[in-house]
Simulated assay, not measured.
Amino acid sequence: AYDPGRYKGRISLYAGAGSTGHLLSLLSEARKDVGAGMDLATSGPESLAMKASFKLQLRGESVAVYTACSTGLVAIHMACQSLLTRQSDIALAGAVRIASPQRTGYVHQEGLIYSPDGHCRAFDHRA
């Protein structure tokens, strides 16, 4: 385990997030409250890496990644490349999507992005 506050090397973060309904609720609040407007400016998925790096006191790259279904895999690839090229001493990678409000299921149509059985298979021949 490394303590980012004491570790002097470069710890980078490659992170991605899908959009949520939370942003829409902030839009309605921003009209009434200046503070809510500030939340709106930094609550999108593109701010995830920057906010997490700041909170964790990381001193390496902070890269927002979004490539739809492959975001997590691309973030891991970028972290590995950073380690191989010695841009970072430690690299963290990940992705998240939290739907708000919660929804389940979708309608599959041949030729569109959703799989017929509900499983995401990025980079797979069955994708």
Rank of each mutant, 00 (worst) to 15 (best):
A1M: 15
A1G: 15
D3Y: 10
P4A: 03
P4T: 07
G5P: 02
R6C: 05
K8M: 07
K8T: 12
S12W: 04
L13N: 04
Y14E: 00
G16K: 05
T20I: 02
H22R: 07
H22N: 12
L24I: 08
L24G: 11
S25R: 15
L26N: 03
L26Y: 10
L27T: 09
S28K: 13
A30M: 07
A30P: 14
R31Q: 15
R31C: 09
K32H: 13
D33K: 09
D33N: 15
G35Y: 14
G35R: 14
A36H: 07
A36Q: 13
D39Q: 14
D39S: 15
L40F: 14
T42P: 02
S43C: 10
S43V: 04
E46V: 13
F54T: 10
K55C: 12
L56W: 11
G60K: 03
G60H: 00
A64H: 05
V65N: 01
T71S: 10
I76F: 14
H77C: 03
M78A: 07
A79F: 08
C80S: 10
C80R: 11
Q81M: 13
Q81V: 11
L83I: 14
L83P: 04
T85S: 13
T85F: 11
R86H: 11
R86E: 13
Q87K: 11
D89C: 04
I90L: 12
A91N: 07
A91E: 06
L92G: 07
A93Y: 04
G94H: 08
G94S: 01
A95Y: 07
I98R: 01
P101F: 01
P101K: 00
P101D: 06
P101L: 05
R103V: 13
G105S: 10
Y106T: 04
Q109I: 14
Q109L: 14
G111C: 04
I113W: 03
Y114G: 02
P116H: 00
C120G: 05
F123A: 00
D124W: 01
H125E: 15
R126K: 09
R126S: 08
